[in-house]
Amino acid sequence: MALSCRSALIFISGGAAVLALGLGSCNQTPPPADAPVAKAPAPTAPGPDLSTLSDSNVVTLLPQYLREHPAAEVIVHTRLGDMRVKLYDDTPLHKANFLLLARKGVFDETVFNRVVNGFAIQGGRSDHRTIPLTRYHLPPEIRPAHFHKRGALGMARYDDDQNPGKLSSNTDFYFVQGEKLTPYQAQAMAGRKLTPAQEKVYATVGGVPSLDGKYTVFGEIVEGLEVIDKIAAEPVDPYKWPKKDVDIKIEVVQ
């Protein structure tokens, strides 16, 4: 009759490793050398638990996260090409939030879900999200120096009739495509006084000045601007969702 084996099980209780022993004496043959070895679970990205974030604590938690885990750029990978994006230092809440969700893999489960050719491409949503995430908002960080030129990265906003503070969405971001405009056209569309330098950018690079002062711009594409046009040219359904998904994978550049 085969004897039972005394086995040692290690588990975590209250943050400490606890050793639990079974009964009996060990008389088992060890596994063969070529037996499959169980793989260790993938490391968890650092930062706060996404299910605990709320409107009341992001102002405290996100700056702390950015100090502990800084980064300046990300690369947005798509089937139509890659976009290298610089994140601005003077919009720390939006920057920290974007880096946190990118590292946690949230954006890797999303697609570009609203594409308006000549205007903007918007991403951050999906029908297949598995990572638990609460819905919270970010206080606006609207800076006059950051405007909606072609390639600008901004954060979307919803429920404007119930959102007088212009709080940003936590997940829905967009890249500006826009079009080239004369200084007169750009100034007429803008909700604020444009500088001569901004008028020149709108004339030579293009953009959407009607969004200025209304949404937080927290970064810009520094490589891969042409990818915006490729995504914007995708056929879309009546809801502006591309008929063939444009998946998103975001790599944080350290």
Rank of each mutant, 00 (worst) to 15 (best):
M189V: 01
L21E: 12
G123T: 08
N57D: 11
D127A: 13
D229P: 00
P144D: 13
G124Q: 00
H128K: 15
T182E: 04
L211C: 01
F175S: 08
V74P: 10
T29I: 14
N117K: 15
D108H: 12
T130D: 14
E223N: 06
F119D: 06
K214V: 08
L194Q: 02
G118N: 07
N117W: 02
T78S: 10
N113L: 03
Q177K: 03
P132C: 11
L19Q: 02
Y239N: 13
N27P: 02
F173A: 04
K193W: 00
V217W: 11
K166P: 01
S126T: 15
P31E: 06
F98H: 02
H69I: 06
A102D: 02
G118M: 04
D159A: 14
K95F: 12
P41A: 13
L153T: 05
D89H: 10
H128Q: 15
V85A: 14
M1Y: 08
L99V: 08
T216C: 04
V253A: 10
L19P: 00
T91H: 01
K249N: 11
I231C: 00
E223K: 14
R192E: 13
Y65V: 01
F98D: 00
V116A: 10
V222K: 11
R79I: 05
A72L: 04
V59R: 12
I75F: 09
Q162V: 09
L23W: 01
Q122L: 07
A2W: 13
F119V: 03
R129T: 10
F175W: 08
G123Q: 03
A102C: 12
H94N: 12
P139M: 05
Q187D: 14
F98P: 02
G224Y: 04
F147H: 09
K104A: 13
H128V: 14
T29L: 15
D229H: 09
R67P: 00
A8E: 14
R192C: 12
G178I: 10
A35Y: 12
D159V: 05
G22K: 10
L181Q: 11
D108C: 02
I142T: 09
P36T: 03
D212Y: 12
D245N: 12
I250R: 01
N57H: 09
V18K: 09
S4W: 03
T78R: 02
A203Y: 06
